[in-house]
Design a protein around this nucleic acid. Structure first.
Length: 427
RNA sequence: GGAGGAGUGGCCGAGUGGCUUAAGGCGGCGGUCUCGAAAACCGCUAUCCCGAUUAUGUCGGGAUCGCGAGUUCGAAUCUCGCCUCCUCCGCCA
């Protein structure tokens, strides 16, 4: 959410931002609502001031035993008028805040202007593409041959787009979770959090998932509860409606959670394998930062996520999203894209974003500087560190051998009881 | 799921319709005193919105006593609904 005053006073900047993002909003309506609200508020507050004064007077006169019936009659009318106007104000404010909630964040000046993913800019490539003396297979075929992935039976249990890991596959998933959590907590100083996997409406409004993206969320029938689409939701809302102290910042958290997404509108896309699932595991990094340090923090968070790929020996590249591809709440986003040999392309495995004060304003997360009276909004950042299912796919495809086995990356072996290779099932 | 109790400022805690500008205390900040500190004393002490103001503040007004509605000229106080916490019973990993 942007600052109402900022929108009011910087109409041009808002129009330019929407243009860059390729979004059309009836802004004129917004400015009309804003003006209506202020006019109504002014009148109502004048009447309330009058009522407050007169009610005090009535109290005094009554104590003196004087007649107050004329004043009471007058105030009855005033109260009726106030109530009537308040109804109008409530409606206006609701419309205004609904509008405010669908205005996207302003991209940082360093974000390239572009229409879609085609215009994203590559920042760097790390590692080498693996070379194969044979045609590399897709990870779902490898997983099936190894007996560690069973999508058919997952369909029986739940439906399409659900994972079922068995044996070494389940262990690999768990090993990756522990491997990532250990690096981030022991080496990078993040505090581990295990949050609820269900969040309420307020929390999802705080991060920007609601009201605009409800279609991608699983809602619990009969409750105002949603399955979390990412740990970003519970983590960001830890400090909702709180005022932190300056010296508490930055606060860095890491969290393993499953993530639940409807993936509505992606029918026919990535239908096979682990890439796009209704349920997947993720280790998420999250930082609450001082505003002046948040871009430094974004670089840090991104390199902390990259560290995992480096240690696993996976080739990847870092891209900065252009204005047209940038998420609704984000001011700047780096995607980490891992090399997938079967697809012969890079696939997003992490998305690291600085939301500046956009989420903090929605979720009302502030901090107070020493010797300063006014609280300010914190900056929030998060990034996957990493998406586990996609990491499994990348490992299976990048480290597959001609005989159908898959070599476990060295760094991961301590988490796999020393296992060096997953061998295909004997048939 | 059933029965009862509670929710007031950073914290504790008083307040059962107007005399509350939310008492009092603790903590915190500033000051007096001191070589310095402690003690004592004095002052300050939240957040949001609207308006004014050559302005990171000040002034005026409005709102906020868990949240939301209602009664009333007037609500922290009365009524209803919801949320959270505590105690007990039942069920349960």
């Amino acid at each position: 959410m942007l600052d109402l005053k900022f929108i009011r006073e910087n109409r041009k900047a808002i129009e330019e931002m929407l243009e860059k993002r390729g979004i059309n909003l009836p802004l004129q309506k917004f400015y009309e609502l804003d003006e209506k609200r202020r006019n109504l508020l002014k009148k109502i507050e004048e009447l309330r001031a009058k009522r407050n004064k007169t009610s005090d007077l009535i109290g005094k006169l009554k104590r003196e035993g004087k007649d107050t019936s004329a004043l009471i009659e007058e105030m009855k009318e005033v109260s009726k008028t106030i109530k009537f106007m308040e109804e109008d104000l409530d409606k206006t404010e609701e419309k205004l805040s609904n509008f405010l909630l669908i205005i996207p964040n302003i991209p940082h000046s360093s974000v390239p202007i572009g229409e879609d993913a085609e215009d994203n800019c590559e920042i760097r490539r790390v590692g080498e593409k693996p070379e194969f003396s044979f045609e590399p297979k897709p990870h779902w075929e490898i997983g099936k041959k190894l007996g560690i992935l069973d999508f058919e039976r997952a369909t029986k249990i739940a439906g399409a787009r659900f994972p079922l890991y068995i044996g070494a596959g389940a262990k690999l998933e768990r090993a990756l979770i522990n491997f990532m959590l250990d690096i981030h907590t022991k080496e990078k100083g993040y505090i581990e959090v295990l949050p609820p996997f269900i969040a309420n409406k307020e929390s999802l409004i705080g991060t920007g998932n609601l009201p605009k993206f409800e279609y991608d969320l699983f809602k619990l029938r009969g409750y105002d509860w949603y399955l979390i689409p990412t740990a970003e939701v519970p983590l960001t809302n830890i400090f909702r409606d709180e005022i932190l102290k300056e010296d508490e910042l930055p606060k860095r958290f890491v969290s393993y959670t499953p993530c639940f997404r409807k993936e509505a509108g992606s029918y026919g896309k990535d239908v096979k394998g682990l890439i796009r699932q209704h349920q997947f595991n993720k280790v998420e990094l999250m930082t609450f930062s001082l505003p002046e340090n948040s871009y430094e923090e974004l670089e840090r968070l991104t390199t902390d996520a990259e560290e995992i790929l480096k240690r696993l020996g996976l080739h990847y590249r870092v891209v900065v999203l252009c204005t047209g591809d940038l998420g609704f709440a984000s001011a700047k986003t780096y995607d980490l894209e891992v090399w997938m040999p079967h697809r012969k392309d890079y696939v997003e495995i992490s998305s690291c974003s600085n939301f500046e004060d956009f989420q903090a304003r929605r979720a009302n997360i502030r901090f107070k500087r020493k010797n300063k009276s006014k609280p300010e909004f914190v900056h929030t950042l998060n990034g996957s560190g990493l998406a586990i299912g996609r990491t499994v796919s990348a490992i299976l495809e990048n480290f597959q051998q001609e005989d159908g086995s898959v070599v476990i990356p060295k760094a991961l072996r301590p988490y796999m009881d020393g296992l060096e290779k997953i061998e295909p099932l004997k048939t």
